[in-house]
Amino acid sequence: MTSPTVPNADAPTSRGWWKENQQRLAPWLFLAPGIFMFLVYVIIPIFQSINISFYDWDGLGEATWVGTGNYVELMDDDAFYTSLKNNVIWLVLYMLAIPMGLFVALFLNQTVRGIRIYKSLFFFPFVISQVVVGLVFAWFYDPSYGLLNIALGWFGIDPIAVLADERYVTYGIIAAGLWPQTAYCMILYLTGLNAVDPEQIEAARLDNAKGVKMLWYVILPQLRPATFIAIVVTVIGALRSFDLISIMTDGGPWGSSRVLAFYMYEQAFSEYGFRMGYGAAIAVVLFLIMMVYIVGFLWKMYRDEKGR
């Protein structure tokens, strides 16, 4: 039986090496620019930072090897523990943005005349720069002219210098940070709420589910993707809390509002910095803390992929 119509399967020379391997190579070629950037700007600098953390270096002159000297010093540095403690406070309290954002989103998820305007207004703090947020709150807290203390005055409470008091300063800055972060979470939940299946709500209604029960058992499970993203961005937001601290207190009073990120910046880059090695050591510790979270994140991703 002649089969002239069957294509010649063993004629690789005519198809070429490229055509042969196209399927396998294409993804890597598309990924190449990304991988290159990721290596140059993320992966390699991580190892460079770790390397620098073993040196005593002013960023200009010769670097001298000090081994784990920077880390030993870190363990005996009160400012480091203050920063670490503040980082934890940030991580915990910043999470409030998620329920607050959910609440606002539920509140705004209705069809009223002009609701878009209200939504925009609630989203507004996220659009403006962190710098502006910081300035606004710094004025709000101002001990002599700030709105907060004028308001406290109505109740006969003495003015509180939130930003000059080591007891309140971190909480004051976090409150400022929660304002835009809540708006961010709100937007995430608003989009999530759009995707809630109306049929399920209908069915739940028929089963007489209402209020909190409806929210907890029907709505929230459907919002899980939104919640996950909200947690991710909030954790990142908390760990990179830098701008607000820099603007509102510059780490003060006497360094009591510093977080690790800010302390690292101060040691390495600020006016009185010049301690690249020590700054890098702080960065490595911060990185390790983040690794815990990164690993958790990756593990969840992996599990979700597998579960599908």
Binding site: Y41, V42, L239, D243
Partner: peptide
């Protein structure tokens, strides 16, 4: 991951951002 790492190298930028404001 990328977000977290970005935090580290963002400091250089933050520094710039700080003086801008």
């Amino acid at each position: 991951m990328q977000n977290n790492c970005s935090i580290i190298w963002n400091f250089a930028l933050e520094e710039k951002g700080r003086f801008m404001f």
